[in-house]
Design a protein around this nucleic acid. Structure first.
Length: 789
DNA sequence: CGATCCCGCCATCGG
DNA sequence: CCGATGGCGGGATCG
């Protein structure tokens, strides 16, 4: 009855969509079945047969229309909607069809639940389910009641990366192993002796109840608006994704997922009903993820029998940072994190999550902001975020592609299926020069990066990616990170820069608080310009415009980047991996100053830049900046000051962290023109690192950018072990020839192209200390068959 | 029959 | 207090 109506509506509103935004992705997605003009038919079929729905993301008109035809043709106006037609997955498809993958800031990207529910002819409740998981991926975020904003996939890459990181930090890989091991043991000796132990470690290991993982431009909104017990779906969805991203073959069985999600804290109560409920929820989540084509249902066959599982089919998530681009940030973040750990040793990682108890604080901050922020702003307008997200996403993609170049896809066969042909084509033909330039970068990246199409990559993006050549040392493609206070300064300077207060916003609120704290902390440091990006350089790299003509200040900036970069590179290999962002690994997180900058036009005049520099240092110590944002077009004029979350904890923390970073930045700056850094710099660096615990006392790090690898006498055993095990993960996909790509820390640490003697800079910290390592490596040889459906 | 998962009651939340 | 959210799990469908 309702089907017909909804379809019609759907078709009508199509104009907003951009079916074309999804290039040839279909070709890649449907290996066996070439995408032809008959595509419609398929869509039609898929609409009717949920089995295929996940594969055919019915986009726009075709989907809607064919669906309509189909239904009307049958004359079955009321043909029992046949449960399937009402499936969450299909509904999600319809929902997604309403919005473009990559919405432009210009469009109206607001989502009104009422409307949607009505147009799609479903109860609100259903929409919530969809929206909730979309929220977990930051594809949408809540603005106000009944109102959400559509981000599309702009934030996806970053979100996934973050989730992966958090997943790693939570040792999900180990947990998966444990669960499997336990099952295995159960199979045989039912004595279940070792179980106790396992269970114990499992529990102790993960005490921190993660909450919602947020991203810098949107999180605040989501969390503040609904500080509601961010329980299930949203969080569960994130965790599920984490599991997938962290699991070796990218496959996680429903059962395992459920167990982990349940017992994250509690023991093995195997609460039957609880388990069942969890499974149910997972299905809900899986359905929308499937619609997004991020996962696909498969079956794993073990001795046990066929078990439902899900395979990640979304974009490959870069191991750590957004490539080198984020290295410096990573570095900074690491330092700070370390400090944080030192300060609050007891604090188990609760990174990236906001603890419920902090919600209040957050709110108060927000309130402050409101008071302070006199400018009346529409509660529902976030352009800033839009920009931000665009850049961020762009960034990650750029970073990803180059990496891919360097090494061939591990699983060529399998990849073929997943990789969009276009991407491959574009990316393969890279000039050697580019590759060379990348080498540096490559060394940084532990593992071959498979770049997969994000469901749909707009052509423009692809081409852009292709052209851009990474310039490791030049600092190209960096964004300028401003400290909030700085941002203000900039703004004041140039009217074209403006802060658009976020509705729910943190941005401003934070500003009010932060600057003080930060400036205070930083004031002691001399002023130095640390890392700053060269605006003109950013994406502009695509036109090889020179760096020769840069102002000295630029150079200065670049230099510091380079230095940090070299250090970071080492760092990158370390286990703690990607801290690319903004998050502050302490009780809550702090997305920091992620500022986007703007454009050529907006590019600051030199003198302003100088000012920028001085401010810049602030960023360095105070916070790991958030995503780097590549510069895109010249029409952008707004400076985005992304959310800046702060908590009392953080504030306390900052001062300490400053102690470490500043040293680095200062020295770097001083050596602006030389290719090598004064020894003193090295010393300081080493001292700092050691002091902070980032590197073992014996290790020396060279600040010389050229020396990327540190020959080291002794190697970090701890890390070595724990990670090595994972590699052993015994999943033998029948379908796939190649072994699962080694996406493990071990790989990261020791298989880098960089060189044998390379040693991760802070190898030994976090990773090795925690519990499980040895035992886990052992996973029964298991025949794991992956069968589609 | 087991795998899926729709449906909608009803507890919470936020205003 | 009310409408918005969204846990939750009974029980219908599907394969």
């Amino acid at each position: 009855k309702q089907a017909g109506g909804s379809q019609r509506v759907l078709a009508d509103r199509q104009p907003g969509c951009q079916p074309l935004a999804t290039p040839p992705k279909l070709g890649g997605a449907l290996p066996a079945e070439p995408w032809t003009p008959t595509a419609n038919l398929k869509v039609l079929i898929s609409a009717a047969s949920p089995e295929i729905r996940s594969r055919e993301r019915s986009r726009g008109l075709q989907g809607a229309r064919s669906c309509q035809e189909h239904l009307s043709g049958d004359e079955h106006e009321k043909s029992q909607p046949s449960r399937k037609e009402k499936s969450l997955g299909l509904l999600c498809l319809k929902f997604l069809a309403r919005y473009p993958d990559y919405p432009s800031a210009a469009e109206n990207n607001y989502i009104c639940l009422d409307e949607v529910a009505e147009e799609l002819n479903v109860e609100r409740r259903r929409i919530y389910s969809i929206v909730n998981v979309l929220e977990s991926l930051h594809m949408v975020s809540r603005l106000a009641k009944n109102r959400y904003i559509w981000h599309g996939q702009h934030n996806l890459a970053k979100t996934l990366q973050t989730l992966k990181k958090v997943g790693e930090e939570n040792k999900y890989t180990e947990k998966i192993q444990m669960i499997k091991k336990r099952e295995y043991e159960h199979e045989f000796d039912l004595d279940g002796k070792g179980n106790e132990e396992v269970a114990r470690s499992f529990v102790s290991n993960e005490h921190s109840e993660m909450c919602f993982v947020e991203l810098p431009g949107i999180e605040f909104c989501a969390a503040s608006v609904n500080s509601r017990k961010d329980k299930s779906l949203r969080v569960m969805s994130q965790k599920f994704v984490m599991l997938l991203l962290v699991s070796a073959p990218y496959i996680v069985s429903l059962e395992v997922a459920a167990k982990i999600l349940i017992g994250e804290n509690q023991l093995e109560d195997l609460d039957k009903s609880k388990f069942k409920t969890k499974i149910r929820r997972l299905y809900d989540i899986a359905n929308v993820l499937s619609s997004l084509e991020l996962i696909k249902k498969v079956h794993v066959t073990e001795e046990r029998g066929r078990k439902p599982a899900f395979k990640w089919t979304g974009p490959e998530v870069p191991p750590n940072t957004h490539g080198m681009y984020m290295c410096h940030l990573l570095f900074q973040a690491q330092i700070i994190e370390q400090c944080s750990k030192n300060l609050f040793p007891s604090r188990v990682k609760q990174n990236f999550t906001r603890h419920p108890s902090l919600t209040k604080l957050v709110k108060s901050i927000e309130n402050d902001r409101r008071k302070i922020q006199s400018a009346p702003t529409s509660p529902v307008k976030i352009n800033t975020n839009e920009h931000l997200s665009v850049y961020t996403s762009e960034m990650s993609q750029l970073a990803a592609i180059p990496q891919y170049q360097l090494e061939e896809p591990p699983k060529s066969e399998d990849m073929k299926n997943n990789l969009s042909g276009s991407v491959l084509e574009h990316s393969l033909p890279w000039p050697e020069a580019a590759l060379k330039a990348n080498i540096h970068t490559a060394a940084t990246l532990p593992k071959p990066l498979l770049t997969q199409p994000l469901g749909a990559l707009p052509p423009s993006r692809q081409s852009a990616s292709t052209v851009i050549k990474p310039q490791p040392h030049s600092g190209a493609s960096y964004a300028i990170y401003l400290h909030p206070s700085e941002a203000q300064a900039v703004t004041a300077y140039n009217p074209s820069f403006m802060f658009q207060p976020l509705p729910c916003a943190n941005v401003t609120g934070i500003k009010s608080i932060n600057p003080k704290a930060l400036s205070e902390m930083t004031s002691k440091e001399g002023d130095n310009c640390t890392a700053a990006a060269d605006p003109g350089k950013t994406m502009a790299a695509k036109e090889r415009p020179v760096m020769e003509s840069e102002s000295s200040s630029n150079r200065c900036l670049k230099r510091s980047w380079a230095l940090q970069e070299s250090n970071l590179i080492k760092k990158c290999r370390s286990d703690e991996e990607s801290l690319d962002n903004t998050f502050f690994p302490s009780g809550y997180l702090i997305p920091l100053t992620q500022c986007t900058y703007h454009s050529n036009k907006a590019a600051l005049p030199n003198r302003e830049r100088g000012g920028l520099c001085s401010l810049q240092h602030t960023v360095t110590h105070s916070s790991p900046a958030a995503g780097a944002i590549p510069e895109m077009t010249s029409e952008l004029k707004a400076v985005n000051i992304p959310a800046f979350h702060i908590t009392s904890l953080n504030i306390m923390l900052s001062p300490t962290s400053i102690a470490a970073a500043p040293v680095l930045s200062n020295s770097h700056l001083s050596s602006s023109n030389t290719s090598s850094v004064p020894n003193s710099s090295s010393s300081l660096l080493n001292f700092t690192l050691q002091h902070v615990g980032l590197i073992p006392a014996g290790v020396q790090v060279s600040t010389n950018p050229v020396l990327q690898h540190i020959p080291i006498p002794s190697k970090p055993e701890s890390v070595n072990h724990s990670s090595e095990n994972m590699t052993l993960q015994e999943e033998k996909p029948t379908v796939l020839k190649e072994p699962p790509e080694p996406q493990t820390m071990t790989e990261n640490l020791f298989h880098t192209p960089g060189g044998p003697n390379t040693v991760p800079l802070l190898s030994a910290n976090a990773g090795g200390t925690d519990t499980i390592s040895q035992g886990t490596s052992y996973i029964p040889q298991r025949k794991l068959e992956v069968s589609e459906n």
